[in-house]
Computed example of a mutant assay.
Amino acid sequence: MLALLPIIILYAVTIILYALTREDLAGTASYWEYFVPVVAFISIITAWANAYARGDSRLLYLIRQIIIWGAFLWMLLTLQAAGVEAALGSEKTTITLILMLAMVAMLVGLYLDAKMFFYSLFLGLCGYLLADPANVAVLGKIGETLKIEDAANKPMMMIMLLAIGTFLISIFLLLSTRGSVAARRSR
């Protein structure tokens, strides 16, 4: 259960930040900025076993993670120092930050940890819905698939259901990694 805690934190905080951002898009950029290192840390610790299960060097894995997340944090600091928030405005800065975080999480997910890939899809959808709230029709399509009536008018419920779905996929991936690690250790 302890292995699930970082993933639970990741999804719970994302849902909370999504809800806060829906209420005040301009005022939540700093919350998302503080969340970026949390996502990076969770990404690093939750995929540590993947390197072992695949037979990769843990040092090489750690270097890759540090390069990816370090470059992203460096880019965010550089953009902040260049005054991008003043140029774009707080609302666009928040959306850009969320979508960039989703993109980096997808990169990490594709190359190092599949759990982050599914999280990035969830975060990308959150960013998309925040960028253009009029496009909640996509939730209607998802709701039809899941047999949920009037899903487009229930964005928070749909976000929570999608978070649960991607969380369950993450649990499956975590358990399969644990099984690979156990098999590798028994050899």
Rank of each mutant, 00 (worst) to 15 (best):
M75D: 07
G109D: 14
V108E: 00
A81T: 08
G55Q: 08
A102V: 05
L62G: 10
L77M: 03
L62R: 02
L59R: 04
Q80R: 15
G55A: 00
L99P: 00
A82M: 10
A53Y: 08
V108I: 11
G89P: 11
G70N: 06
L88V: 08
I68T: 05
Y61H: 10
I66G: 08
I63E: 07
A82F: 07
T78F: 09
L97K: 06
A81P: 12
Y111T: 15
L97Q: 03
R54C: 06
G89I: 09
S90A: 15
A87S: 04
D56E: 15
L79H: 01
A71P: 03
V104I: 15
G70T: 08
I67K: 08
I98H: 09
T96Q: 00
T78H: 11
S90P: 10
T96Y: 00
L110R: 12
M100S: 09
S90I: 12
I67S: 02
Q80T: 13
W69Q: 13
I67G: 04
Q65C: 00
L110H: 10
L62I: 11
V104A: 04
V84H: 09
M75C: 04
L110D: 11
K92R: 07
D56W: 15
L79E: 01
L62Y: 03
A87C: 09
A53K: 04
F72E: 08
E85A: 13
L73G: 04
L77V: 00
R54D: 15
R64H: 13
A105H: 08
T78Q: 08
G70F: 07
K92A: 14
L107H: 03
I68K: 06
G83W: 14
L59E: 08
I67H: 01
M100H: 06
R64W: 07
G109T: 10
V84M: 02
M75Y: 14
A53C: 11
G109E: 04
A105G: 03
L62C: 09
I95R: 13
M106G: 13
S90W: 00
A102L: 02
A105P: 04
R54I: 03
I68V: 14
L60Q: 03
W74L: 09
A71E: 07
L79Y: 03
L110S: 05
L99F: 05
V104Y: 11
L110E: 04
M75W: 06
M106R: 04
S90C: 02
L79W: 12
G109L: 02
T96L: 13
A71Y: 10
L99V: 13
L62T: 10
T78M: 14
V84K: 01
R58I: 07
S90Q: 14
A81N: 12
A71K: 06
I68C: 07
S90L: 13
R58Y: 00
A81K: 13
A105S: 06
W74V: 06
S90M: 08
A102C: 01
R54L: 14
G55S: 01
I66K: 11
E85I: 05
W74S: 07
A82R: 09
M100G: 03
V108C: 04
L97E: 03
L88G: 10
R54K: 14
I95C: 02
V84P: 01
I98N: 05
D56K: 02
V108T: 06
T94K: 06
M103I: 06
L73M: 12
L110K: 07
K92W: 15
I95D: 01
E91R: 11
R64K: 15
L62V: 05
L59N: 08
M75N: 12
R54A: 15
K92Q: 15
